[in-house]
Amino acid sequence: MRLRELRAILGQYKDKIKYESKAIQHSSKTDVYGLQKTFNAINQVAKLGFLDADIKRLSRFESVYNFRSKNDSMRLEISEYREIDTTINIIKEKIEGYQKLLSISIPENEENVLSVRLPQYKEISDLKEFFDKLEKALHNGLKIEENTGDGQKYQLQNFDTGSLWVDILFNKESLLLFGQLIKLAINYQKASLTQRKMELEVEHLELDLELKKTYTDAIKQRLKLTLDAETKNLESSGNYSEESINSMRMSIQTLGNLMNEGTQFHTPLNAPDDVRQAMPEPPETKVIDTIQNLLESVTEQQGDE
């Protein structure tokens, strides 16, 4: 799990650790409200592995820890409640400590951040080629004169230590535009994988070379038409110049090729709604995985013969 995602998860569940008590007059008992919800939140955080000792202490109060009610209320002995309350406060302090530690490691400005997951490269030369392609996609997609947001359009913000992730900070206008390009690039990527599958199938057919070339040329033309169609979508979404459209066309093609290599683009868990809506997340690429599997299947069949 990435450090940025870990911090967001800790913040999300820490805010759900809320409960209150109301002492009963002339009694050794107190009514407690919200413990059930609190335990659920603690159990989610406990999956991260740093609350094992605290969970063990809470689970000693088995009837309380596993209690369930519609209104999330229970009546406890005051002494019992105090022990549980002390343990929960220790848990909250631990969560806050981890959050502060992570805040030191991660830049604060993340509203307009795009996280890029690199393919699983094994060669250093592959990394250089990747960043050259990514810079090309960013430059071509965002250099358009209509993108007039104040300040630098994008800049490298962070490398996630120990993983193949890089964070890029955009101005708001540029990030929304780049999200649109990524959406169009996904469609192009699907078409390019389908094209590759069809090319492999044509190679597998018993046809003369001239006819195979005719089929292959037709398949390539089909991919070009797909790219033309995606570029057409840009023309209808803004008053862009011809130069800008051609530039963004190259960006779409480059992004699609990067996705074919395994590149992924993610927004932070706590990104604003308009940013999250502008940026497609990996679940939308399940169809691509299916096509990729079919492509590999065709390749394996050819290899077996």
Rank of each mutant, 00 (worst) to 15 (best):
I9R: 07
L10H: 07
I17Y: 09
H26C: 09
S27K: 12
S27P: 02
G34I: 02
T38Q: 02
K47E: 04
S63Q: 04
Y65N: 05
D72E: 12
M74I: 14
E80K: 01
E83T: 02
E83Y: 02
N89V: 00
I95E: 01
Q99W: 09
N109D: 11
E110S: 09
E111H: 06
R117H: 12
R117T: 13
L118H: 03
P119K: 06
K122R: 11
K122Y: 08
E129K: 13
K133L: 07
L142W: 07
L142S: 11
K143Q: 11
K143N: 09
E146S: 14
G151A: 10
Q155P: 01
L156I: 15
L156P: 04
F170Y: 04
S174P: 10
K183S: 05
Q189S: 05
K190A: 14
S192Y: 03
M198P: 01
H204P: 00
L207D: 05
D217S: 15
K220V: 06
N233D: 12
E235D: 09
R249T: 10
M250D: 14
Q253G: 03
L258I: 03
M259K: 06
N260A: 09
N260L: 09
E261D: 03
N270C: 07
D273C: 01
N293T: 11
N293E: 10
E296D: 15
V298K: 05
V298F: 01
E300G: 00
